[in-house]
Amino acid sequence: MIENIPLPATDDPVDATFWAGTRCGELRIQTCQQCDQMRFPPRPMCPSCQSQESYWQPVSGRGRVWSFAVPSSPLLPAFEKLTPYVVALVELEESPTLRLIGPVLHSVGGEVSGVEAKDVRIGAEVTVDFKRYSDDVAMPCWVLGK
């Protein structure tokens, strides 16, 4: 078992711009050049109009908790050390079908560890924050409260 938190590959041309965005504090959503539909997770073709041309649009970073889980043992060692923590699926303000997963934080710049089920509720308003996991990974996290 690996000792660290697993990290996303950030050099895939399909989503490298997403991770470049998070590194500079921006949540960017892939958007179709032809029909302007936003899509997530990133992919090479628009499922609405089949265009392969897209651009990346910064979004507000505001959303609501669709649901959440509170994982506990047995976990990878790095996650064991973080318990208790909460992971939320958040629907973005821009469109309820754009849903991103991220750890929940009590405050901007706060810790993943120390958040419990009682702190979070379905429908809660959250705002994105970015946590540096490595040189190339700034992980979108969700901060409770407006």
Partner: peptide, 9 residues
């Protein structure tokens, strides 16, 4: 990459 790294392991 959109869930395991975030903690849905």
């Amino acid at each position: 990459k959109w869930s395991r790294c975030q903690g849905l392991l």
